[in-house]
Amino acid sequence: MAIKRIQAGKIRVLPGFKLTLGFTLFYLSLIVLIPLAAVFWKTSTLTWPQFWHTITMPTAMASYRLTFGASFLAALVNAVFGLIVAWVLVRYEFFGKKIVDALVDLPFALPTAVAGITLAALYSKTGWIGQLLEPLGIKIANTQLGIFIALTFIGLPFIVRTVQPILEDLDPELEEAASSLGASRWQVFWRVILPMLTPALLTGFALAFARALGEYGSVIFIAGNIPMKTQITPVVIMGELDMFDYGKATAIAVVMLVVSFMLLLTINVLQWWTNRFNTNHLA
């Protein structure tokens, strides 16, 4: 009798539902939801023209263009090289592969301030890489190129780690079938493998892009804080905070938050697509 009711899901065998869900919701509200709501509360103290004027001021507009542009390019470069790295790690054997595999996560584990000063010093005029590029007329420290380099570093693991498991689970029979039907290796890659990796690649791209948009620590040291030129949006917010202009800082933060939430939604849809794709094709 009891077992039948358990199977029908009428009574819960396991205890602690109210306690754990209650604590989860309480802690989530206290740490995340209520403080985030403060942003919208603060914004509501601004009038609409004030808000609009702040979010469209020239330094802000320039920072959006730079942040989006550099983040997009960095994610794109990572998509190409991340795919190659994932491919090499899954398909080939070479000396030191395990160490390389472990080190791919370095940008996740290395604090952003450490990454920031390291990249800034490496690419400065006297740094290991900077002094090689200086005679060629390429300047990286205190330029937009430097921001792009920092964002590439930060986004590096995302593509590798989303593509790698899919590539590992790929059924070799599909490739065998294609090549036994006369497809060249390049055709197999382009027509069979790449389409199956597309959802994972897009997810990784979106994750890297989202991370780059909000990045602060690894960028500020190499960027040099030149208004209109090398100020990313988080730096503009920080500038307003340093002047204790919380209204302006909050208005620009709202723009970033709305973009981040839309990206989060996109990533969730992409991940759902990746999962569905896998169950359909790899089952």
Binding site: I237, M256, L257
Partner: peptide, 11 residues
């Protein structure tokens, strides 16, 4: 998905 700077700002 919240920028660290905004995470500080909200507090």
């Amino acid at each position: 998905s919240v920028s660290p700077v905004i995470a500080g700002l909200i507090y």
